[in-house]
Amino acid sequence: MGIIKTENLTYVYGEGTPFRKVAVDNINLDIDEGEIVGIIGRTGSGKSTLIQHFNGLLKPTSGKVFIDGDELFADKSRLKEIRFKVGLVFQYPEYQLFEETVYKDIAFGPKNMGLSEDEIDRRVRETARLVGLKPEYLEKSPFELSGGQKRRAAIAGVMAMEPKVLILDEPTAGLDPRGRDRILGLIKEYHAEKGTTVLLVSHSMEDVAKTVSKILVMNNSKVFMYSDRSGVFAKAEELTSMGLTVPQVTRVFDRLRAAGIEFEDEVFSVEYAKDLVLRLLRERGQSLD
């Protein structure tokens, strides 16, 4: 069994009212430990509802959720303990900062876990380093930081809980390219250093293609597919028809294939595209010009 597993997970909003909506519909998933997974789907496809089940913020209408082998909601007294295994970073997390200092804000989660002062201190300093916040920022008010720094401080607040699974909902929304790259970079670093499972919810196919190893596509409250990157981008046409965009380079190479250039690969990053073009040219024993 993987780190996150669901069995026939279904969630219905507003049962018994005219606004009734099945937000996630009979979902069976099994995500392996240490994986870095992108979750994509258009607004309202159920991805936000799905991730809120993974740490017990929502209780399934029917079906089960297992975290690290433990069933959530099976034993209410253990809910909190299991919940701490899954860290959830919401959209625009900087809007939940509230403490007097950045240090205290990052320490909020670990404190709620009942850790010792020393352990809290270690974790705050370590995560601050991981997200690239200089030690002198720790004593500042979080409201004095710049937009990107606030975002990183808020993410650190969840990372400091050292969850086995870290889920981030649109962590790059509204940032400039530098801020975007920085956040994606630190997520990758965190994953490499800690080996933690990471789920990354995003609208941006470019971000997902650059960062993750597997992709979960949600459509109309159901899982459309769960596969590695090339498997998903091979279905570019279907993705487009469900209102998702594919990376620009993927579109270019799909058109090249349609126009009769022969290659097997699914292209989803600039790096890969470059290597492919060079290989194709070499295979033909052709000069580069």
Binding site: E262, L281, R284, G285, Q286
Partner: peptide, 28 residues
Amino acid sequence: AEGCSLPDDIISEDECFERLYNLLKKGG
């Protein structure tokens, strides 16, 4: 940078497709 002869001011998908097509088609 790898030595391909392409214009350095390609910014649209259409243009990129056309240029790469011409580049790859020659030998194919």
